[in-house]
Simulated assay, not measured.
Amino acid sequence: MPTSIIIADDHPLILKGLKDFLIEKEYNVIASAKNGKEAFTLIKAHQPEIAILDIQMPFLTGLQVAKKCKEENLGTKIIIITFEKSEEIYKEAKSLDVYGYILKEFAIEEVEHCIDNVLQKKSYFSPELIEYLEIKQIPKELEILTETELRVLQLTAKNKTAKEIADIIGCSPRTIEKHKSHIRSKLKLSSNANSIAIYAKEQEEFLSKYT
């Protein structure tokens, strides 16, 4: 079955252009809306796989629609399209579990690739936005580690020994070594004794929140 999509934009030409493109690419565009309130009503009624929303719309913004969808546990994945290159908006979008963030000037070029990523449950943010904001994204592999493993990695980056880490976390040095073994396995690091320390140092800026 074609991917079901609802689109919303208060600019008629942009809305028509996006709709025509998606239909041409054989997506199932269920409906389109000209404001945020209408968009949310349609999402709630049809619960499409994806909703592509302009960020600035009357009644409700794209992010306000995303917030309402999150509050009501709707499964629709949200893609935002905007001219805005704002770190504040970027961070808010991330906090609302928005899956895609496309700059309007690249919308037609990027939307298909963005949808493909979203269908695989991967987020997609315009490379131009990331480059503009100079955002360093957290390496994907860190997401597969447990909170304790991340803490061990973070303390390793600070040159703590297994015994020192064990004292801080409140367990035995042997347990810490087991955690390190799991980290090596998950991250596919070599069995070299220094491999974790080297990796931890390379990712220290991302691990700093686990202090």
Rank of each mutant, 00 (worst) to 15 (best):
P58I: 06
F59D: 12
F59A: 11
F59L: 15
L60R: 01
G62Y: 10
G62T: 05
L63N: 02
Q64W: 08
V65D: 00
V65S: 00
V65P: 00
K68R: 14
K68I: 11
C69K: 01
C69I: 01
K70W: 03
K70H: 01
E71K: 08
E71M: 08
E71N: 12
N73C: 11
L74V: 09
G75D: 00
I78T: 08
I80F: 10
I81H: 15
S86Y: 05
S86E: 06
E87K: 15
I89R: 15
Y90F: 11
K91R: 15
K94Q: 08
K94Y: 02
K94F: 02
S95E: 12
S95V: 06
S95C: 04
L96G: 05
L96T: 09
D97L: 14
V98I: 13
V98N: 10
V98H: 10
G100Y: 07
Y101G: 02
L103H: 03
K104P: 13
E105K: 14
E105S: 14
F106C: 03
F106H: 07
F106M: 07
A107G: 05
I108E: 14
I108L: 15
I108H: 13
E109K: 09
E110L: 14
V111D: 07
E112I: 14
E112W: 08
E112Q: 11
H113M: 12
H113P: 00
C114W: 10
C114P: 04
C114R: 11
I115Q: 03
D116S: 08
D116Q: 12
D116G: 02
N117T: 04
V118C: 05
S123Y: 12
F125K: 05
P127Y: 11
E128Y: 11
L129A: 03
Y132N: 14
L133I: 06
E134D: 14
K136R: 12
K136C: 05
K136S: 12
I138T: 15
P139K: 07
P139C: 09
K140I: 10
E141I: 07
E143H: 14
I144F: 11
I144S: 10
L145T: 01
L145V: 00
T146D: 01
E147W: 01
E149K: 02
L150K: 10
L150Q: 03
L150C: 02
V152Q: 01
L153A: 04
L153T: 05
Q154R: 09
Q154T: 11
Q154L: 03
T156A: 04
T156G: 05
K160H: 13
K160S: 11
K163Q: 11
K163F: 06
